[in-house]
Write a protein that binds this DNA or RNA. Structure first.
Lengths: 232, 232
DNA sequence: CGATTAATTGATACTTCTCAAATCCTGTGG
DNA sequence: CCACAGGATTTGAGAAGTATCAATTAATCG
């Protein structure tokens, strides 16, 4: 996988917080960034650490999670092309609140802290984009809190499946294009692995989804949305 | 309650995102802001609305909550002196994600959207503070997600009581200085009112807290922290 | 002082978790 | 290419945790 050395030629830019950075700003980042790769399963950032820079994901899929009691993972969200990792910690001047692990081979650009701050200072628009981004994520987190607190496991599972479908899209056979173990799904929904398994099979029997091994495809989005009580 | 017309003389400033705004910036806000009051129980912002400005709380206490299925409140967090309401929505250009209701009589300054943006544009430092603030809250939200997903009700209750104690402090008798109904506590913990009542009485019998009517005082913080699995 | 709302307690039902056992996959080395 | 080891998935049974409903008592407000 080749990542352009010049950010201005990177097609991921359009989806990223960098999308309306000046040419000078992009050139500046280009000079200071480094390209890095992570293998499937490799830890990119460790909860509690103090990062010295941010990663901009070029391609690949990454999970962000905190470790709860007894070391159980709670997946907070996913990160993919164009997304940033580590900016929250750097900006709030706090240790990293969530670990990041690659779900598949991932390529990214590493931008050192100092350069990141320089770009923020020199580009009010970029700074505003980051602000917009973090505020958006804050809203998403609020929704997740309400779901966890008020919905039952089946409703939350339906919701997560819909979210996964929008985040990762579908492959040619209509399956959600992400490879997660049942345990990882459980760690998102906030339940036991066995419960997820039982409910997935229930949803299958009821005709809302179909599945083949790990792969899951949504069959009846409308009903799933209704079940998850998403009225948007 | 008198709020200074000049923000530079407002003693709430030190705790707020405005804390290192330039004198000119503060003067600018002073000109454009309006003072408003809310009675206990009054709704300040309504979920789904598009706010035309932000409120800076001068004194009083406010709950932020979303309405889940069947109209049940989920309290996301509390807002008090020096905190802002509505900035998330304005910055992310999305409808308000959480309603705000005054828990006691509250005085605030209203800053129209346009002025707010002008101050952001003219004061990179303020913009950076907001960024810092939203990133911090994002971390807090992540913690809440993990708690809800992994801890049982008693552990979450212990956690919430500790949070309330730090957020609102104690009155002269050591009781947490906030007046919440058992239902509101339940709406934070994400459980039924009766469960909260039972567990509060359990914690009392075990000597971790004492209570008098609605009022609750922490007696054994160390054990509560252990129970809530907070190791910070 | 009523009238209303909030808090408490008990009994029961339901949801979800945990543990254990069986089956299915997947990648690896022969 | 096959067999096998180790992990992942599935299923069942029983236990634990919570919610719900109903009835009672306490607190609060005009």
């Amino acid at each position: 996988m080749d990542i352009p050395h010049q950010c201005q030629f990177c097609n991921r830019q359009a989806n990223s917080a960098f999308h309306d950075l000046s040419t000078e700003g992009l050139a500046e980042i280009s000079q200071l960034k480094t390209c890095v790769s992570f293998r499937k399963g490799q830890v990119i950032m460790h909860e509690g650490a103090r990062p010295q820079g941010v990663y901009c994901i070029h391609n690949g899929k990454v999970k962000l999670y905190t470790l709860g009691t007894e070391g159980k993972e709670q997946i907070i969200r996913f990160v993919t092309s164009g997304d940033l990792i580590g900016y929250r910690s750097i900006l709030s001047e706090e240790p990293i609140s969530a670990s990041a692990t690659a779900l598949e081979d991932t390529h990214a650009c590493y931008i050192p802290k100092s350069s990141f701050f320089k770009v923020i200072q020199d580009n009010p628009k970029f700074s505003l984009n980051l602000l917009k981004l973090s505020c958006h994520e804050l809203g998403e987190a609020g929704k997740m809190i309400t779901s966890l607190a008020q919905k039952n496991v089946k409703e939350r599972l339906a919701e997560i499946l819909l979210i996964l479908n929008t985040t990762f899209g579908e492959d040619e056979d209509g399956y959600i294009d992400i490879n997660l173990t049942r345990e990882e799904i459980a760690n998102m929904v906030g339940t036991a692995t066995e419960s997820v398994i039982r409910l997935i099979s229930e949803l299958r029997k009821e005709g809302y989804i179909r599945s083949k091994g790990k792969r899951i495809a949504l069959e009846d989005r409308v009903s799933l949305r209704q079940m998850a009580a998403i009225y948007e």
